[in-house]
Amino acid sequence: MAVAPADRRSGLSLLRSHWPAWLDLFGWVGRISETRYWAWLMLLPGFLLISVVIFYPVISGIWLSLHEYNLLRPARGQPFVGLQQFIDLLDDEKFWLSLRNTAYFGVFNVVNPFLLGLVIALALKRAVRGAGLVRTLILMPWFMPSVVAGHMWALLLDSRLGVINDILVKLGLLESYWPWFARTETAMPAILLVGLWRGFPFFALLLLAGLQSISQEMYEAAAVDGANALSRFRHITVPLLLPVIVVAITLRTIAVVNSPDLMIILTGGGPGLATHVLSFYAFQTAYATFDFGYAAALSVVMLGILIFFTLIYLRVAGVDRD
C-alpha cells in the first residue's frame, strides 16, 4: 500500500510507541535476518509445505497421463502408452466441447464479476452515506457455503418454486415459469449469474483495498492539470491498480477453471452437454468411469492451459518484468 508522505512519519512514530520492545528480544532472528540466508529462510517453510503436497500428486499425475490405468481393469496393469491418450483427446468430441464450454465459462465467470466488483469498488471509494453498511453486506454472498448457495440458487431459479420466475411473470417479462437449467440456451447463462453473485465480492474486496491505497493527492494534482475524470481513471487508477487486478484475475481464473462445483449442484453438466466443462469431465472420467489414465491426460492438458495462460497474462500485464 502506498502511503501518503504526510502520514508516514506520524504513523511510524505511533507504531514505535505501540510495539513492545520484547519483539526485538528474538535477537538471533534479528541477527540471522541480517545475513544473506534470510531470504531463503523466509521461503523455506512455504516451500517445504507446498513441496510435501505438490510433487507426488503432480508427478504421479503426469506419469498416469502416459499410462493406461483403468481401476476397473486391474488385470491389465498400467502399461506405458506414451502420448496415446493425448492423441485420443484430439479425436474426442466431448473434449473439444468441454474445452469450448470451459473457455466460455472461464472468461465470463471471471470478467463479469471483475467488472461488477470494479464498479462497486469505485462507487464504495466515494464515501456516500450508507457506504459502510454496503461494504459489509456485499461480502455476504461469498460467505455462504457453496452447498447452501448452490441449492438456494437452484430454488430461486426453480421452474416451479422459483421466486425469480414468479417475479418475472408478475412483471410481465415472462409468460410462464422458465426452466432455466433445463434449456441449452439458458443453462450456462444461469450458472454465470450464480457465478457472478458468488464472485463479485472477491473482486470488490481486493480492488477496494487496492483503490484505497492510491493517494488522493495524485488525483488532485491531475485535476489541477486539467485531466478529466476519464483520463484520471486511465492514467492513475488503472496503472496503480494493475498489480491487484492481475493477482485477482489470475487467482480467480485458476479457481474457476478447476472447480466443477456449480455444475455438480445445478446442472450435472447438462442439459445434454451444455454445461459440460473440462473440470467436470475430468471428475467424471476418474470417479464414474474410473479411467484414471485418461483423466490424468485431461488434467495435464488443463494444467498446461492454465500455466500457459498465467505466463502470457503475467507477461502482458508486465508483472514479472523486474
Binding site: A39, W40, M42, L251, S279
Partner: peptide, 29 residues
C-alpha cells in the same frame, strides 16, 4: 516478504510454481 523484497534467480518461476498446486486439477490430487 521474500518474494517482494529479494531478487534471486528463479524468483518468477518460483512464484508461478507456488500457484502450480492450485492449477493442478483436484481430481488427481
Amino acid at each position: 516478504y521474500a518474494f517482494s523484497r529479494y531478487r534471486f534467480t528463479g524468483r518468477n518461476a518460483a512464484l508461478v510454481g507456488f500457484l502450480l498446486i492450485r492449477m493442478f486439477p483436484m481430481v488427481l490430487m
